[in-house]
Design a protein around this nucleic acid. Structure first.
Lengths: 179, 179
DNA sequence: TTTTTTGCAAACAGTTTGCAGCACA
DNA sequence: TGTGCTGCAAACTGTTTGCAAAAAA
């Protein structure tokens, strides 16, 4: 969804195109993938220090309702915020490395198959589909094996469980000051 | 995951099997599908009025870390809590009606295909996979069409957007008192 | 110049944490 | 009989809301 297309869509719904919304649209458009509200706020706040966090939430809600962005719940380091991505793209799954946090996108026929099967099997009208896959990327599989070996050599048991997103000790995203 | 299997698994990890945990395990085991922390707490609290909400959260965390339950983010009526289900079952997608809130489970080869393709395509080691599909069930498609027609006949515009989970005006789950 | 939208502060919902006493192994 | 667990209260994070001032159309 380009910023212009979004602008048109909003205009048609009789929604005013304020300076703040223009900025947020532009940032969403250019940054593209997997932003959370806080990160979007940080980016916007840099360019317009008056812009408030609340405006970000309100704008995201608006765009979500207009079908211009999709809301995701990525299983990053245990953070529980929502992520947003613009809705240009084809249906895709999010493939998330639980160690480095990198998010890949996977396009492929299983997703369309799944949608069709659900529609025909349940007589369901599919409006949204989200798939997220967590695990270790090729790179981190190696590093993780090393970490485990080292931890075992050391204190005995000090590594996070593997079957589940980190949660406690994993790096956590920096958090902007409130107010 | 039967309650007994869970008990064994916890015992092996040197985790104590307290009265509270036994109760929670039993409830999870019997109730099965898609409980949120609050509902589990309500159920448990009925049988043991001393049991605290915090214990529910701590136990769920424990079970999650042990891979005994999976955490879901179902796109119900805009509620943002997590849901939990025991990990007996085969991989499946959650199919959620955005009108009536009913959750179906879909088992089928696209899910296994997807997993295999992601593994081979990225060299990724898949640990968790979640798929949720939102839309209208066969029953609610009809009702929704009626609702829209009625609303149109009435005030003009009063129906929720269709492309996005309700959020504002949709029925919201009852919320247990705090403290 | 009317109707939206913003910014601020404060509320809210879901979840986590610190600590003293209780209870499982 | 000690280490781990619970309950309580209070903190914390992400998000929403009420209201007066500011700004689009």
């Amino acid at each position: 969804m380009t910023a212009e297309a979004a602008r048109d869509s909003l205009k048609q719904r009789g929604i005013r195109l304020t300076r703040q919304r223009q900025l947020l649209l532009e940032l969403l458009d250019r940054t593209g993938a997997h932003l959370d509200a806080e990160s979007l706020y940080q980016l916007a706040h840099q360019r317009d220090p008056k812009l408030n966090r609340v405006t970000v939430y309100r704008t995201l809600k608006l765009l979500k309702e207009g079908g211009l962005v999709d809301e995701l719940d990525l299983m990053h380091y245990g953070g529980d915020q929502h992520y947003y991505e613009t809705r240009t793209k084809q249906e895709h799954a999010h493939v998330i490395c639980l160690r480095c946090g990198r998010v890949e996108e996977f396009y492929g026929d299983p997703l369309q198959r799944l949608r069709r099967q659900v529609e025909s099997h349940f007589g369901f009208q599919v409006l949204i589909a989200r798939t997220e896959i967590g695990g270790y990327c090729a790179h981190c599989q190696v590093l993780r094996a090393q970490e485990i070996a080292e931890a075992r050599r050391g204190s005995g048991e000090d590594v996070e469980p593997a079957a589940v997103p980190a949660g406690d000790e994993g790096e956590r995203r920096r958090r902007g000051a409130r107010g």
